[in-house]
Amino acid sequence: MSEFLTQFSRSLPSVWQGVSVTLQATVLSALLALVLAFVLGFMSRSDQLLVRGLSRVVVEFLRGTSLYVQLFWLFFALPILGFKLEPLACAVVAFGLNYGAYGSEVVRGALNAVPQAQWEAAVALNLSPWQRMRRVILPQAWVQMIPPFNNLLIQLLKSTPLLSLITISDLTFQMDQLRSTTGNTAAAYVTLLVIYFVLAYALTLLMNALEAVAKARLGQGSGLRHVLKPPSAGITDPDGRAARAGGV
């Protein structure tokens, strides 16, 4: 065990390298997913049947075909069709598309959850459709999106060991290296799990802080004091669709 710790401290730079690769993939994928979630989410509320239908088909396709298969398809099958993506790009596209589809359900649900009366009040003040969305609906819906977005972000983080399967030197890869040099399998995997747990917890704290700030702007909650609440709150749905009711 002590030998493992010595080795671990010696290889800290490469572990750190792995962490940064994993986080880089997570953040880039999350950004792509966020953009896609809003695009698909807004499309799903369109007056045009065609736009709505297109959004539905894309979402169902991306959700239905398994992230694992999508990633492998992009990595192994797409080059056969003549498009070769860098491994990291493959991962970001696969994660971004898949979680973007789940995220679009969050966006749609949160927009629908803003009471109809808020739209009506905005109409009565003669705000334009864009102003209604931008100034009245989105600021309220946003608060409701944060907890389910956090759930999706943690799921995304948990998918990142897949990076090691497509030749990326991520955290999992680096820890696997450490495992073979030390021969201490148990210590290596437990350490890896602990690092992932810490990363997930840190992300959750960050998202809780974001939620607290957003809520404070709605005159709800008590600011940053609730940031340290456990990350469990609101995880009841694999799609992160169950937006928690606002308010305290």
Partner: peptide
Amino acid sequence: QQFNLFPNMKVLENVTEAPVHV
């Protein structure tokens, strides 16, 4: 009947929102 104030804006902002933007 239910007031329908915008919870994402302070009181004065509720009153000035439409005059500024409309």
